[in-house]
Amino acid sequence: MPDSRRMRTTIIRAVAGSVLTVAVLTGCSGPAADEQRPDIATLRTAEPASAAPPSPAGRERPVIRPDEGREEFDRYVAVWQECLFGRGVPRVPKGDKPQLDGHETATAECEHLYPENWMEREARTNPEYTDRLRDTAKCLKAKGHEVTVGGDPVALMYGDNTSANKAYDDEQECQRTAFREDIKKYDGG
């Protein structure tokens, strides 16, 4: 018995190996591409993806997080300017704005590099932005500031620049409170 089992196992392995070999060879030895029949379904590999870079229009701009400041903004602006200069926009002294008139193509190709602050991103993407802004205004009013929500685009509105300047620190605190859940996505840590 043991010998017959061993022999059966050997025969089964030999047959399975032969079947596998035939299957592999058959799969590799099909007709040439120009001789293939359209009535027979075949597996074809996809064409390689385009080597062209992704469209700048679909890219998100970098965000200045709540814990970042002027230094980070300036770093992003320098990257944006280098993009412009590399596409033919004349260089300008540090601190000056590039002259973009007549350079629409360069402007369009580099616009995704110009930073936005986290509140600008919220204004564009958060459907609850106006409600959060109203909560910010309530907080500011509780601290004694005269403020409303309105305009196009919607924003906090003060009576004058002096009132806005006096409210600056309280506004930052009230924004962080009103947007506390949304702000988590900008956490730098």
Rank of each mutant, 00 (worst) to 15 (best):
D3K: 10
T9C: 12
I11F: 08
I12D: 11
I12E: 09
I12G: 06
R13M: 15
A14Q: 09
S18R: 03
S18L: 15
L20Q: 05
T21P: 03
V22M: 13
V24I: 15
T26A: 14
T26F: 15
S29M: 13
G30I: 12
G30R: 14
P31V: 15
A33V: 14
D34Q: 08
E35N: 13
Q36E: 14
P38W: 06
L43D: 10
L43E: 12
R44W: 13
R44P: 08
T45M: 14
T45A: 15
A46P: 06
E47H: 08
P48H: 05
A51E: 08
A52V: 11
A52T: 11
S55E: 09
P56V: 06
R59T: 07
R59P: 01
R61I: 02
P62T: 06
I64G: 00
R65P: 00
Y76G: 03
L84E: 01
R87K: 15
G88L: 07
V89N: 04
P90I: 13
R91N: 04
V92Q: 08
V92M: 07
V92W: 01
P93T: 01
P93G: 04
P93D: 03
D96K: 02
D96A: 10
D101W: 08
G102C: 09
G102R: 05
E104P: 05
T107S: 13
Y114L: 10
W118V: 02
M119W: 01
M119G: 00
E120L: 07
E120K: 02
R124A: 15
T125E: 14
N126W: 00
N126M: 06
P127E: 10
Y129N: 08
D131T: 14
R134K: 12
D135H: 02
A137S: 04
L140H: 01
L140Y: 00
A142Y: 03
A142Q: 15
A142E: 15
H145A: 04
E146T: 11
E146W: 01
E146H: 07
V147Q: 01
V147E: 00
T148Q: 06
T148K: 09
P153M: 04
V154C: 07
A155Y: 05
L156Y: 01
N161Q: 12
N161G: 15
T162L: 01
S163A: 15
S163L: 04
E171I: 00
E171W: 01
Q175V: 05
A178I: 00
D182V: 09
I183K: 08
K185G: 03
G188N: 09
G189V: 08
G189D: 13
G189I: 10
